[in-house]
Amino acid sequence: MESKSRTLEITILSGEDLRIDNKSVKKNAFVDVSIDPFNCKTTKMDGEGGSNPSWNDKLVMDMPMQTRFITLAVKCKASSGEKTVGLARIPVTDFIGGYSPETCLQFLSYRLRDPKGLKNGIINVSVRVKEPLHACSSQAAAGLGIPIDGRNDFGVVTGIPIWSGYPSNSFFR
């Protein structure tokens, strides 16, 4: 039987031009990734990157089938407490059912908006949905340097994407 959730590998790569009250973030930026209020993970804090932090932090999370958005909240720890730098909502459809198979590594970038709704920097992430039944060709993800001798001969088995096997309404329950 099909499971009710799938495994999401989300790597929070970097941020660009982060500001708080129009001043560049100096350090200690981090990202909260939430699939729902009870399913959150947090990256490590960036100590050196200033307003262009890089985290390269891979978070593995369970994503229920009905999830439609993932929320990224970039925050910053200061002496006065935590401040929110900006938010981005990633529609799940941006990486499932897009041009490339979701089991391949996909790079995504989003505009962040601060709590007032104003544009504030950019966040770069990469996403991969783990589907153990469906092999993925992404070398980066698999870490394999497969030598390919014949150009078109890959011995590939055509597979129907797993998600298309679900009743279509299960997405939007």
Binding site: Y99, C104, C136, S137, S138, I148, N152, F154
Partner: peptide, 14 residues
């Protein structure tokens, strides 16, 4: 064009 490119990456990275 994007669909053609997207379909190809799952079995041919070259």
């Amino acid at each position: 064009a994007a669909q053609i490119a997207g379909q190809t990456i799952s079995n041919d990275i070259t």
